[in-house]
Design a protein around this nucleic acid. Structure first.
Length: 482
RNA sequence: GCCCCCAUCGUCCAGCGGCCUAGGACGCCGGCCUUUCAAGCCGGUAACACGGGUUCGAAUCCCGUUGGGGGCGCCA
């Protein structure tokens, strides 16, 4: 049987890193088994769903490289893949349940329910629905509905009873129906709840494995009950532990960023994000940390998924990003940096500038952890006037004898026959020797002078990239500014 | 309150009865390298929550305690 898995995000917020991880595990499982990965939009919450969030989700799924075989925007044999377009189908299923006595109308109002829930809590009873309307004879219920009385539809959970299933990551599960209330499948306004819509879709779309967050573990009996009532094939469930913030609480906005978009904007590249997310709860078995995507696909197994909650650690993510950044081909690195550099400079670079960027790029590549660190380090190459970092200026330019160093550097560099790194180095080292200065003391003012910062790519190469005229002008301008 | 899940270094993971004086990675600390910042290299720090069993032998199996997480919605 072909493996069919899905990710079904609800477009009620930006694409969350936790959803990203769940999507990744589903995708890996599908690719590992030659299965089908489906993207469905669980947009039954009309109030909170927006097109903007929907776009953000698909954009980031693509950004991560998680291509889907069926679903939203790409289509497939089970179109449409948006729940808001399948409302009729949910009613069909609910009506069938009603007719078969597997569901019943409930006339309790949200207010009453709320009151009873609070009372039950206060008395220490389970706060779930008490099943009151299940006693109403079908004929009477039908009459009341025809008379126009508002009613939701609840699933009649078999009592006594229990649901048993084997979770692919957690093992044998047994949940007594005492702890599963008669849940609503259709709201009184006729809209389907998540429980109904999601389960119906899983059956209709032929989903074989549901890999999702642990927060849905407790409601799995409901989904199994619906699947069974529909006569659908049993589905294998796999519940992933949740992602935590640094304080051990569920990862939320309080801990910083939960939106994948934020990490992307910070300069994380998708390869690193995928690798980091993959290892946040899954282990290839060996003591490996950097695992190429191909290996992941080959080795991914639900049995190797960790059951413990995992703390999302941005520091490790950034370290890993550095690893991937350094592993990039030189031109690939430039290609990824270019948009950020151009945005930083505020215009497109011309051919000459592109050449200069390509020249220094490998030097910044070996020291960058984030894509966003690049532009500030190469900016000095593309602006007419550098803005000096105040702290760097004060610290370096305030030192004794800086004016002499600048003058000597200008002299030495003016005399350089060929403007290349080696000649520049020779000239400057000669200057250092003549003035009996350490490289640390004698070069740092030059760095600040040409780059505006005490942090820059290596000096000699930077000067070559800048060009003789600009370098000299910047040194002179700096001397005048002292 | 009730139900479910989980429990190895600060963090992520390895370990699935003897190979464990518990391994790797991030972080942190120290050193080397060095024209800045990084990167790199070397070294160090640091954990089997607790208590009972089972067994010749438990990080590994069972029970309990404690702790953490999730759920108990006409949200998804």
């Amino acid at each position: 049987m072909t493996v069919r898995v899905r990710i079904a995000p609800s477009p009620t917020g930006y694409f969350h890193v936790g959803v990203g991880r769940t999507a990744l595990y589903n995708w890996l499982y599908a690719r590992r088994h030659g299965g089908v990965f489906i993207v469905r939009s669980d947009d039954t919450d009309a109030e909170r769903s927006t097109q903007g969030y929907q776009d953000d989700i698909l954009e980031h799924l693509r950004w991560l490289g998680l291509d889907w075989d069926e679903g939203v925007e790409v289509g497939g044999p089970h179109e449409p893949y948006r729940q808001s377009l399948r409302l009729g189908r949910y009613h069909e299923v609910a009506d069938a349940f009603l007719a078969a006595g597997q569901a019943y109308p409930c006339f309790c109002t949200p207010g009453e329910l709320d009151e009873r829930r609070k009372a039950a809590m206060a008395e220490g009873r389970p706060p779930g629905y008490d099943g009151r309307c299940r006693q109403i004879p079908p004929a009477g219920a039908a009459a009341r509905r025809e008379a126009g009385e508002a009613a939701s539809v609840r699933f009649a959970v078999p009592r006594p009873g229990a649901t048993d299933f084997t979770d692919a990551v957690r093992g044998e599960m047994h949940i007594g129906h005492d702890h599963v209330d008669d849940f609503v499948i259709l709201r009184s306004d006729g809209s389907p709840t998540y429980q109904l819509a999601s389960s119906v879709d899983d059956v209709d779309f032929g989903i074989t494995h549901v890999i999702r967050g642990e927060d849905l573990l407790s409601s799995t009996p409901k989904h199994i009950l619906i699947t069974g009532a529909m006569g659908g094939d049993p589905i294998t469930y796999a519940h992933l532990s949740l992602l935590m913030g640094p304080d051990g609480r569920k990862l939320s906005k309080r801990h910083g960023d939960t939106a994948l978009r934020a990490y992307r904007e910070r300069g994380i590249i998708p390869e690193a994000m995928v690798n980091y997310l993959a290892l946040l709860g899954w282990s290839p078995g060996e003591d490996e940390t950097v695992v190429p995507l191909g290996d992941m696909i080959e080795r991914f197994d639900l049995g190797d998924v960790s059951r413990n909650p995992a703390v999302f650690d941005p520091a490790k993510l950034e370290w890993m990003n550095g690893v991937y950044l350094r592993a990039l081909e030189a031109d690939d690195f430039v290609a990824r940096a270019l948009p950020l550099v151009e945005a930083d400079v505020g215009r497109a670079l011309d051919d000459d500038e592109l050449g200069r960027l390509a020249f220094v790029a490998p030097l910044v590549q070996e020291r960058a952890k984030l894509l966003t660190e690049i532009a500030p380090q190469v900016r000095f190459l593309f602006v007419d006037e550098v803005s000096y970092d105040e702290a760097a200026w004060d610290k370096v330019m305030g030192a004794e004898g800086v004016d002499g160093v600048l003058a000597a550097a200008i002299d030495a560099l003016s005399a350089v026959p060929e403007w290349d790194t080696a000649s520049i180095e020779t000239a400057l080292r000669g200057m250092l020797e003549a003035r009996e200065l350490s490289a640390r003391k004698g070069l740092q003012p030059l760095r600040v002078a040409i780059s505006g910062s005490s942090i820059s790519p290596p000096l000699f190469e930077s000067m070559e990239a800048l060009g003789r005229t600009r370098t000299l002008a910047r040194l002179a301008g700096c001397a005048a500014r002292l």
